[in-house]
Simulated assay, not measured.
Amino acid sequence: MKTDSGHWATKQENGSYHAIRLLLLLYRFGGKWLIMISLAPVLAYFFVKDGSARRASLQFLQQLHRFKAEQSPFKQKPGYWLSYQHFWHFALAALAKIDSWLGRIAQDSVVYGGSATFEQIRQSGKGAILIGSHLGNIEVCRALVQTKYPVRINILAHTKHTAAFNRILKESNSAVDLNLIEVTELTPAVSVMLSECIERNELVVIVGDRISAQAPERAVWAEFLGKPAPFAVGPWILASLLQCPVYLMFCMKQTGGYNLMFEPFAEQLRLPRKQRQQVLTQVVQRYAAELERVACQYPLQWFNFYDFWQLPLTTQQKEHRGEHSSN
């Protein structure tokens, strides 16, 4: 199946500020059923319009189905109906972010399914890095944790595409403290700022499943669902520089609530100069294996709607492809 090989960072945010605001106002004041009725045609429109995201959804679901074979969570090869449900889960995840910051998600609906709890992380008395992903809903995790614990959680993010949604989130609850740090590349100034966060025993969240927006070629390849995929090196280099504990973090929606999973990854990540590439490859493969494990349990909560297994085309490659197609 053909998929677009553009960079994830070039995809534009679907929907204007006013459209998103209208939907969220309907949700906040009209309740669950009103927004469900309103969402269906809107989501159908984007499903038809955004061909690249639709193809990427099918690619992921079908690859997972092939990889799991007889243990696949799907009874048959995924098609457009399952892909539409994939989009639907993405929309519900966005609404859940609002719910979490409005206090609509009860703490007793949250279970800790990992080998560590947030309480244990805080009792260590150390700052730490939490490696998240676009699998599940780390924003819900952060809201639930900050509601219960007096802790500052800083998120390194590429916020250009979610500016409208973040603005509405802040408007929905003036107490929302997003603590979003826009980072396009890891500079010495960013490293110093984050070191100060760690020294104050704060937490730093960064996703590990998307390659760099500035230098996508600086990726490490690892097996994911039976095929090599490019993964970012930045989170792991950052972790080695900050010299603090590293945890993996997942927040997955399940029947009746959420499953928050924290997995200890390294007490301190070290990347020896002479063996740096080798160790980086091992580290990234460990992360990819955990990402794969959770993705197979919650496949419809995978929210990377682009060709995950390819590097984006360079400008030169795009021009060459255009010349070839015109001949």
Rank of each mutant, 00 (worst) to 15 (best):
P299L: 09
K77Y: 13
A69N: 14
A106R: 07
Q278T: 15
Y84M: 06
Y247F: 14
S16N: 05
L242V: 05
L178W: 01
E267Y: 00
Q285W: 10
P228S: 08
S38V: 10
I121K: 00
L194E: 07
M261L: 11
V42S: 02
L82K: 03
A143W: 02
D307L: 04
S326L: 10
F60W: 03
G31V: 14
V48Q: 04
L300G: 01
S124Q: 15
M193N: 10
M193R: 13
V48H: 01
R286A: 09
P230I: 13
N173C: 11
Q59F: 03
V48S: 13
A215S: 14
A175C: 05
G257T: 05
N137L: 07
L102K: 10
E290A: 12
F118W: 09
V204H: 00
V279T: 13
H65R: 07
V294P: 07
P299Y: 02
N137A: 09
Q62Y: 08
R200A: 05
A116M: 06
L242T: 02
C251D: 10
P150E: 05
N259V: 08
R210F: 00
A164W: 11
G132S: 14
Q85H: 14
V190C: 03
L92T: 15
S174N: 11
A239I: 02
P264H: 01
C251S: 10
K49L: 08
K318R: 14
A288W: 04
W302S: 14
T159P: 08
